[in-house]
Amino acid sequence: MANSWGSLLQNEQQLEELAQQAVDRALAEGVLLRTSQEPSSSDVVCYAPFTLFPSLVPSALLEQAYAVQMDFNMLVDAVSQNAAFLEQTLSSTIKRDDFTACLFDIHKQVLKEGIAQTVFLGLNRSDYMFQQNADGSPALKQIEINTISASFGGLASRTPAVHRHVLSVLSKTKEAAQILSNNPSKGLALGIAKAWELYGSANALVLLIAQEKERNIFDQRAIENELLARNIHVIRRKFEDVSEKGSLDQDRKLFVDGQEIAVVYFRDGYMPSHYSQQNWEARLLLERSCAVKCPDIATQLAGTKKVQQELSRVGVLEALLPGQPEAVARLRATFAGLYSLDMGEEGDQAITEALAAPSRFVLKPQREGGGRERHL
């Protein structure tokens, strides 16, 4: 759809000048990343990649995405609370994927001991693509749902101003005014704030599990700043810090550096490279606590692609969301085809179809941060 904006440009020089203005505005608005060369230093930054023009989204599809998001949240919660479904669905995956197996092992240990937390928080992000129907109309299709470390809410909050500026430079003020304001960092912070409130300890803190070398720190700081404006304090710690300075009391309350933790917000822990044996032990300690985890380990498992594939099977949504036919219909309308690559007849059939028409398929990694999707 970018071609719809391309007609506004007269030549290559105008494009280059407009791009430079857009970059300067992005820097001024705080659409920032740390550079890959100096990821530990806040004073060396670059702009985060962004499109020169805003993406055109049909209003009907935008409304559809709004309408179905609560259904997806309820579905993820239902999956995370259904231990039998998770075990059955992931049984083949944990045999071949050590990372998922380690997550599932912690999940089983927590279930055996008894889940201590009573409040559960999910901050989920749905990713969509448009599919062209036979009549040429676009359809909304969900590619994946992110249940851990869903990022770029902070930077997305600042991007509309950049696109308004670009269109205003081109004297398209009417179009600029149509760009919707979007403040997901505030919404994410409100979710954490509500979990903190329900935990019920005014002096407890929010613990953000962070990577040592974090390029996307400004995205995270936006949420931290929203929380601080509500007088909710956040401390940033690595898994190693939790291992060395974290503890549980007799009621399984979590303390780090002697401070009680109400909410654990993960911006790390979604890739195998994020874990050493020490880090796995720290994750278990966090999961055993009564602090609100965002996400708890069952919700992280609910976001795997194998679970997403299982949800597309006939009758599965109805079993997980009984008595909610309207929600099931809204969810199923967004499903793209999902196919197993497990050994056996079903996997063989999927591979045969993919080889016969590779342009119709996208290969997705099993977990978050495990790589980019690949067109076959």
Rank of each mutant, 00 (worst) to 15 (best):
146 N>Q: 07
196 W>H: 15
19 A>M: 11
286 L>K: 03
173 T>R: 15
229 A>Y: 05
111 L>S: 04
264 V>W: 07
179 I>R: 06
262 A>F: 02
172 K>F: 08
271 M>E: 14
207 L>N: 01
251 D>Y: 13
356 A>N: 12
358 P>W: 07
7 S>E: 11
224 E>C: 12
365 P>H: 00
341 L>P: 06
323 G>T: 00
57 V>M: 15
30 G>Q: 04
343 M>V: 15
143 I>N: 00
62 L>P: 00
190 L>G: 01
220 Q>N: 08
347 G>N: 02
110 V>K: 07
318 E>S: 03
89 T>G: 11
240 E>N: 05
145 I>E: 06
173 T>V: 07
176 A>Y: 11
225 N>S: 13
308 Q>G: 13
254 L>N: 04
322 P>G: 05
75 L>C: 07
254 L>Y: 08
246 G>P: 02
248 L>E: 00
115 I>T: 14
273 S>W: 05
18 L>T: 02
210 A>G: 06
109 Q>P: 07
252 R>C: 10
148 I>K: 08
330 R>A: 04
357 A>I: 05
297 I>Q: 00
345 E>V: 01
102 C>D: 09
41 S>G: 11
375 H>W: 13
122 G>A: 10
221 R>S: 03
69 Q>P: 10
238 K>V: 05
351 I>S: 05
364 K>Y: 09
172 K>Q: 15
364 K>W: 03
170 L>K: 12
298 A>S: 13
224 E>F: 02
177 A>V: 03
63 E>T: 09
283 R>S: 13
282 A>T: 11
322 P>S: 07
261 I>P: 04
122 G>H: 00
80 S>I: 09
91 S>D: 13
99 F>T: 06
67 A>L: 13
308 Q>W: 02
253 K>D: 12
16 E>Q: 13
42 S>C: 15
209 I>K: 08
12 E>M: 08
29 E>A: 10
147 T>F: 01
261 I>Y: 12
109 Q>K: 08
44 V>G: 02
197 E>C: 07
143 I>A: 14
245 K>N: 15
112 K>E: 10
80 S>G: 14
53 F>V: 13
368 E>N: 03
180 L>P: 01
36 S>M: 09
127 D>M: 09
112 K>V: 03
255 F>K: 06
226 E>K: 12
120 F>N: 01
17 E>M: 11
13 Q>V: 14
